[in-house]
Design a binder for these strands. Structure first.
Lengths: 111, 111
DNA sequence: CGCACATACAACCGTATGGTTGTACTTGAT
DNA sequence: ATCAAGTACAACCATACGGTTGTATGTGCG
């Protein structure tokens, strides 16, 4: 149940172009919230909220540097999303394999 | 701009536990909307809406079989999400490589 | 044909979301 | 000690979202 909520937060955090761009920019881990905000046509507070959402989703972390707080992407968060998608792919492949096995059986039974 | 909207739809479709479960179930591509709906504690119409959202996101397709419409997961849709996440990973690795190169340079300059 | 089943869609409701402005708390520089 | 930069947070507003019920549409069967 809790796992689902984590995944909800993860994907809904990624479901916004501004937030995805913040994730991309924060891969360098060099900008504070003010600097980030300057890239987007919205208020500083709005960007701050986006960062907070990404933080709660485990996609970025904040680190104090001087009087700024630098935003840095947490690659492990991205990997969590990748793993979930990989699981679907694995289930799908397993099903394809099962079907192939069945098909192989039936064709070898009818020469 | 349009690409962003596609990605928005893709990830926000995945940002709901019920919808993720529908994606999982529809990997088998065997159930119609009514059968799907029976698995969840909500009305048929609600499930129908979820399926519509997944369909618009390109994550499932519907196929008429008899008087039912079978819901089937579109694995290519899942892959689109994977590719996007992979791109972030690639950017991140590129940055790590750049940093390693810089570090190697500076250490070989100070024997 | 006529009925029942599977699906589709519209109207509505409460709550979450993305945005705004305004105020308050730290921290570094002067 | 003071002031400004950087950040945090609360209150508010419009719209989107997840859910409901109710009504239509289309398809198979007797």
């Amino acid at each position: 149940m809790q796992v689902h909520a984590d995944h909800d937060r993860l994907f809904s955090a990624l479901a916004d172009a501004t937030r995805r761009d913040i994730v991309r920019r924060a891969l360098d881990g060099a900008e504070g919230v003010v600097e980030l905000a300057e890239h987007y046509p919205m208020s500083f507070a709005a960007v701050q909220k986006h960062v907070a959402i990404l933080e709660r989703a485990g996609l970025v972390t904040k680190h104090r540097i001087g009087r700024r707080k630098v935003v840095r992407t947490n690659v492990e968060g991205l990997r969590a999303a990748q793993r979930l998608l990989d699981q679907y792919e694995l289930l799908w492949r397993a099903r394809v394999d099962r079907m192939n096995a069945i098909l192989a059986e039936s064709t070898e039974a009818t020469p």
